[in-house]
């Protein structure tokens, strides 16, 4: 069973739908006290919205300490979009706020782009091989992005993406925590395949 953390930051139903398509059962968790929290193989931290309010909501619902302990035990965790950003050391969005500190780096507003938000399909440049997901593709290897803030390339960067003059971390990995700045659940069959490889990589 995969747990989808619901902390009031955006629609998480589509992550569950994508996992279902891959034959994976998931459950939406409002609180770490949910009885299902004890039997999870992996956690997903989705999210759309602003960093400070998302972080405040995670703290007030008791999720921040649960996630930190989960990571300390090196259990599988996937952060998507804002969920990935929350796993960084902090963010400059709306002032300076602390993150959960799994990934190295401070989330900052993208600079050097012609338009913001960065919306649409963009490519990944793999910096570190991602097992099972490196097969050559005949066209552009694209994923769906929607965001205005990003993580500068740093220690945990696995893939980067460039838009105009901005280059940011699009995939990060630290231990058994993986983060995607884009939405694999909205990135067509390619996104579903990446999710499937991610579960294999995490041993779920």
């Amino acid at each position: 069973m995969i747990g989808l953390i619901d902390y009031g930051a955006g629609n998480i139903g589509n992550v569950g739908r994508a996992l279902k398509r891959l034959g994976r059962e998931s459950v939406v968790l409002d609180s770490p006290d949910d009885p299902c929290s004890g039997v999870l193989e992996a956690l997903f931290l989705p999210g759309v919205g602003s960093f400070p309010s998302a972080m405040a909501s995670l703290v007030s619902r008791g999720w921040s300490s649960f996630i930190s302990e989960w990571v300390r035990m090196d259990r599988p965790l996937v952060g998507i979009c804002l969920g990935m950003q929350i796993l960084c050391e902090g963010s400059t969005e709306g002032g300076r706020s602390e993150g959960l500190g799994v990934f190295q780096g401070i989330v900052d507003k993208l600079s050097g782009t012609r338009k913001l938000p960065h919306v649409g399909w963009n490519i990944l440049e793999w910096v570190v091989p991602f097992p099972g997901d490196m097969e050559p593709t005949p066209g552009l290897d694209c994923f769906y992005f929607v965001h205005s803030y990003g993580i500068p390339p740093a220690r945990d960067t696995v893939a980067t993406t460039t838009v105009d003059n901005a280059c940011f971390t699009s995939v990060a990995k630290r231990g058994r925590t993986i983060g995607f700045q884009f939405h694999p659940e909205r990135s067509g069959f390619r996104g579903l395949r990446l999710l499937s490889h991610t579960m294999e990589e995490l041993g779920v």
């Binding site: 593709t137 067509g188 069959f189 395949r193 499937s196």
Partner: peptide, 11 residues
């Protein structure tokens, strides 16, 4: 964006 042929394989 051009998606690989046979992208449905295994899904």
């Amino acid at each position: 964006r051009i998606e690989a042929g046979g992208a449905m394989n295994g899904l």
